[in-house]
Design a protein around this nucleic acid. Structure first.
Lengths: 129, 129
DNA sequence: CTTGACCTTCCAGTAGATGGAACCCCCATA
DNA sequence: TATGGGGGTTCCATCTACTGGAAGGTCAAG
């Protein structure tokens, strides 16, 4: 399988796949003409990475998860711990964004947006936290 | 005012302030010894930027907002539009994260984490979206 | 005069790609 | 046989928003 096909099937840009090889996430074989030759296992890995990235795991997380994934005998405890930590990070991000949203929402609400110079948004931004 | 003081008062690392000068967000004067000499106006701008960044505005947003802020005669309409667009982006991010959280939460919940090899998290990540 | 805190510039690196240039490979058609 | 097009390849630069570190200048206190 060439990079184009694997790109379509994994839903990742070819550039990104080359980049993943660059950083040693995957190691596709090579044809005699120098083209990358992807097997089903490579495709599966890329799908895995694609999905993990979509769920916000970092590349380093992916590296660890892939290693765990390849290890038939590993305990699910490690996986659950990593995923759990990540879940906590997501919760933290959501909380941060919600707090931002609230503050900004108030500022936007307070601004008439009627074409006059008076603007509570800029005034609000100029005041220290 | 030297960079140390303005750093404390604006709540931004000195490095970051130098960086902001580098990208022309601010233009502090210089003392004869080469030290940056910050005025009240610089401090006010940095406080503004610091707060806007904390609310998730990009540097480019900050640049535009600063220009609007400096323009006494500008209409609040532009400001409200920018802030409104940003609010929509925040809402989108929150929604994305919540959807991630849900999916990942299900996976974590489904994994016993009991030390055995069987792990629904890895299985789930290996399946296409 | 020395010490230490503060300031300066410059260079490199972070995450995670993405864009572009210049070039190679393979197949089909005129 | 030329040529055109749609693959593929490498390498280098760029993006965002900083951050770290080295090497060195400045200043006030003791």
């Amino acid at each position: 399988m060439n990079i184009g096909e694997v790109s379509t099937r994994a839903g990742l840009p070819a550039k990104t796949i080359r980049y993943y090889e660059d950083i040693d996430l995957i190691r596709p074989a090579r044809d005699r003409n120098g083209y990358r030759a992807f097997g089903e296992n490579d495709l599966h890995k890329l799908t895995f990475i694609s999905r993990a990235r979509a769920l916000g795991f970092t590349i380093e997380n992916c590296r660890v998860l892939l290693a765990l994934w390849e290890d038939q005998s590993r305990a699910n405890t490690d996986v659950k711990r990593i995923a759990g930590e990540h879940l906590a990070q997501i919760d933290q991000k959501i909380a941060d964004l919600q707090s931002m949203r609230e503050t900004l929402g108030e500022l936007v609400h307070a601004c008439a947006g009627d074409g006059r110079p008076d603007c509570p948004i800029l005034t609000g931004l100029g005041r220290p936290r």
